[in-house]
Design a binder for these strands. Structure first.
Lengths: 201, 201, 201, 201
DNA sequence: TATGAATGAGTGTTCATTCAT
DNA sequence: TATGAATGAACACTCATTCAT
């Protein structure tokens, strides 16, 4: 998981050691979450796994939820980046190809570590979203609605909302059910998306 | 959330007083959940709100999760009943009308108390599903896939899976965002469903 | 386990039904104790196993400990009876033979159900001894010291005390260690007893 | 008494403060046990008496039983040490003198605080013995049987078992009865032990 | 700045006992 | 007299957070 530049932790880590500690805590958190879910995710456990004291942990994060919020933010940031790339880096693409690129970018994220992704999404809607994460989600929506608007699709905002929601619905249900065939899933989501748009994929 | 042994209700209440207590506990649980979410959902809090002792609570439920499981089961049972009615009680309906009836049944459930429904759905996939709830969900899927099969739609099972998933995706996202216009939502879900099916609604 | 006549329960059971209920509760208690020790020995469990309501249980026993006290008392009563028989019913016996008869009577008790006996003895010295049980124990000591006195052994009281104590020590340790060879144990206890007395067995 | 997983102390206290807390908890436990027996022996009560928080208690002991196990272990360790000294530190002793030294060592332990010792012994056979305590007890038996073997006594192991058992029987009964005359008790135990061995003390 | 010992409110659950029916 | 639903004090244990060193 990549680290995006600024993500308002308690302090801006400037020194080498600080940044290292900060990263190490997030890494440990991710691992703990991946293994045991929220069950064993305690600040003491995180600190131990990170090889750091609880005190240090609280030096970088004001409380437990801040760690989770950071993880969520990073997930969204990396997703936003991928969406960005899917839309921007391929100037000559048709509308359909762009949409597929977005779908596949999203799918790749979910299939990479389905349980962890599902967990972070669950955490995301239990936590009060911080401004930056909200902005990231807005950017993603914006990317989609801009694409729709650019191709003359009416009510782009609302349509983007629904397309994201239904894609997410299928992806979530499928991964939870253990389905992990990328191509199959991509086809199904495409069918849903283009069906909603009234377009033959 | 500690997962314990059983999750089924401890005793089937037969006497009047028992039944009352049982109901009163579930009612109090629902109210507590509606107000404060899982946050304040404590066995002691439930008992207090129900005007009953903790001991009584444990007479009817083996543990805290069993209360939640019961609530989920009841939600699914009532949903299943509504689905049943939507499909069965209207023999002369066209395929499209039947589908709309199902969509609306589902929507009515979600719009009735969006937060509570969302909460129970979240709880549902944190808890190990008891056999009966699983059966109820299977029945609902079965109702949908049977309808699809009856109208010659191929791969009915998988299609039902995706339709349920995408409908849920839209409904969940919309209600979370505070959207509560029944007709508007119904239209959008119809568009998604019929689009997936390649049918003009 | 035999029931001795009068054992001051809460009420003297005179009616057939009462006596039956009383017995059934004690029997259930014994079984529960035999299986799970004090662990699962709850008044509700006893009542259930006895096929009786908790309310009824409290009709015959003022509290949980009274049940245990009764069980202990019955154990002591039956032991006293056996001791009595060992000494009284065999008039022509030599001193040595009488001692062996007592030892064997005690051993038979412990080997019959070692765990249960050990459990009741443990319970016995956790509970305040009721007058009757105290009397029973005194009778048993009395039987032994009388025998000693009758054969000219000095300081009969104290000697009886020690002989009972050391016999019990060996028997308890042996049965706890799983040793259950009656003849072997009898030999060892005899060696200890006659050794203490300075007599060749 | 609920039996849990481990029973070994959670962390070996190395820092000064830790060691102090650890000791203070054990000391408070001992005092509480001495006064009220197992009755009031609550983790919260221990913590309170120790002037420490419950949380701290659980930092050093994984559960309540572990405290008891530690107390038992320490009792056995100190007893083993005394036995060791009784046998080892007095090279020129006759067999009889050595036996008496062992008896007296044991007696001193029991007479020092009879109720507490009895309590810990009771606890000892309710708890699953941890490896170290088992080893300590084995060492003590070994010390006795080695002494017997060294002096040509046959079946040393079994004999040691019985001697320990009968000594314990007398000591336990006597102290429970409130007898606390060291010399008197020593005489009586000697009489039992040497009697069993067929030796004139 | 880092450490990790200490805190203590809070949580789920049990079980002896009571009492309305 | 019998029933069993109801009671609620009590208990073991957790974990986010603080703060002295």
């Amino acid at each position: 998981m990549k680290r995006s530049q600024s993500i308002d932790p308690r302090k801006t880590p400037t020194q080498a050691r600080s940044e290292y500690t900060y990263d190490v805590i997030l890494q440990a958190s991710l691992e703990l979450l991946a293994r045991g879910g929220l069950e064993g995710f305690t600040t003491n456990a995180v600190a131990k796994r990170a090889g750091v004291s609880v005190g240090s942990l609280y030096q970088y994060f004001p409380n437990k939820d801040a760690i989770l919020a950071t993880l969520v933010r990073e997930m969204r940031a990396s997703m936003r980046d991928d969406f960005q790339r899917a839309v921007t880096n391929t100037p000559g693409l048709t509308f359909e190809a762009s949409v597929v690129a977005l779908i596949d970018a999203s799918l790749r994220h979910h299939l990479d570590d389905p349980d962890l992704t599902a967990l972070l999404e669950k955490v995301e809607d239990e936590l009060p979203l911080d401004a930056e994460t909200q902005a990231l989600k807005a950017e993603m929506s914006g990317l989609v609605s801009a694409l729709l608007r650019d191709h003359g699709i009416p009510d782009a905002e609302r349509t983007a909302f629904d397309l994201i929601a239904l894609s997410h619905g299928i992806t979530h249900a499928a991964t939870q059910a253990g389905q992990d065939d990328f191509d199959d899933l991509s086809k199904r989501v495409q069918r849903a998306v283009f069906g909603y748009l009234g377009v033959q994929a």
